[in-house]
């Protein structure tokens, strides 16, 4: 029916159907299929599928005879109109007069779906082969009620479960398909995202051991772990005293000197060795220190990029940097060996 994607417009089929108002006759009927058929139709339980029965001012006026519908509408358009190619229902009653149960309407943008006019419990859809050849004339009237769509949708609480089956099935399929696709996309995206992270060999190089006994008194060594700079400084007693004699309440990032040390295996601190990150907390430059001949105003480090001064405990004292030089994760694996990890 080609309505999907072109809402609001008549497709060629609809135009053809719209022109098909009137009597549809099917003069043939094969006998034998009548035995198990339900008796009379209960008009009140008439339910619509798509094409659906629309609210008709004239109640109880016709049965939708699907053979007739097929014959008439299928003309010249069988392949496309299989949607509405109703199988005959067993509701054909063994009487010879024509009846109209209701108006058949096509609901805009829904008619693509295979749908059967369901006539409650009293009328079941049988496959085409059971299509009898009627000796009598069935009448049906086809209209296209474009305005009736809202009224048709889902508001009929009396409908049997199957009445709106087409709609709920379609919703279910849409939601299920989109959910599965989204799940698949997420599952696919995860490896593509994860590969951007550090690889296993990179992660394996994320720690290193340093022999702090090799650091000269008053000097420092600089090491790179995974490209990140770290300072290991051997402080003099004067520098240690400077670091301890600071009123920390006046510091921008208050920390005592002891807070910035890590204990040895026996629990004691080794204030002579200070380990800090080598990245200025302002914008990541590497501050200069004893080896470069500049210690800054507070005897620690000086960042030449934007003039941050760090004291002998690596704490920020002056300049734009907001925080002290961070102390990395490290531990004493022996008296003189530390292991620094990222």
């Amino acid at each position: 029916m080609n309505l999907v994607g072109r809402p609001g417009r008549f497709s060629s089929e609809q135009e053809r159907i719209a022109g098909l108002e009137g009597e549809l006759a099917d003069g043939k009927r094969r006998s034998g299929a009548e035995q198990d058929e339900p008796a009379l139709l209960s008009f009140g339980s008439l339910k619509e599928g798509r094409p659906a029965v629309v609210t008709s001012p004239a109640a109880k006026i016709g049965v939708i005879h699907c053979c007739a519908l097929q014959g008439a509408i299928g003309e010249g358009k069988t392949a496309r109109f299989y949607d509405v190619d109703f199988s005959p229902e067993a509701c054909s009653q063994p009487h010879g007069s024509a009846q109209i149960l209701g108006y058949v309407g096509l609901i805009e943008s829904q008619a693509h779906f295979t749908a059967f006019p369901r006539v409650g419990a009293s009328c079941d859809i049988k496959p085409r082969a059971s299509c009898g050849s009627a000796r009598y004339v069935w009448r049906t009237k086809l209209r296209i009620p474009w305005e009736s769509r809202v009224a048709e949708h889902g508001s009929d609480s009396q409908s049997a479960g199957g009445a709106h089956a087409g709609e709920t099935r379609r919703d279910f399929i849409h939601i299920a398909a989109v959910t599965v696709a989204a799940g698949g996309a997420a599952a696919l995206a995860w490896p593509f995202l994860q590969q951007l992270g550090p690889a296993a060999d990179t992660r394996a190089l994320s720690s290193t051991e340093v022999d702090v006994s090799k650091v000269p008194l008053g000097g420092e060594i600089r090491i790179l772990i995974g490209g990140m700079p770290f300072f290991v400084r051997h402080r003099t007693d004067a520098e240690i005293q400077d670091a301890r004699n600071v009123d920390i309440s006046k510091l921008r990032d208050p920390q005592t000197d002891d807070d910035r040390l890590r204990p040895k295996a026996d629990g004691s601190l080794n204030p002579a060795i200070l380990v800090t990150s080598g990245s200025c907390t302002h914008l990541g430059c590497v501050p200069v220190g004893p080896a470069q001949g500049t210690l800054g105003d507070f005897g620690g480090w000086y960042c030449p990029c934007h003039g941050s001064h760090y004291d002998t405990s690596g704490r920020i004292r002056k300049g734009p940097a907001p925080l002290n030089l961070p102390v990395p994760k490290y531990e004493y694996t022996s008296d003189s060996i530390i292991k620094i990890s990222l």
Binding site: W190, P191, Q194, Q195, L196, A199, A200, D201
Partner: peptide, 25 residues
Amino acid sequence: AMHYVASTDQAFASVERIMRDVDYG
């Protein structure tokens, strides 16, 4: 191409690295 190294010395090893070390490589 983010992980591959086009060099006769490192190409083979970089492919092996993709297979072993790069997450989901």
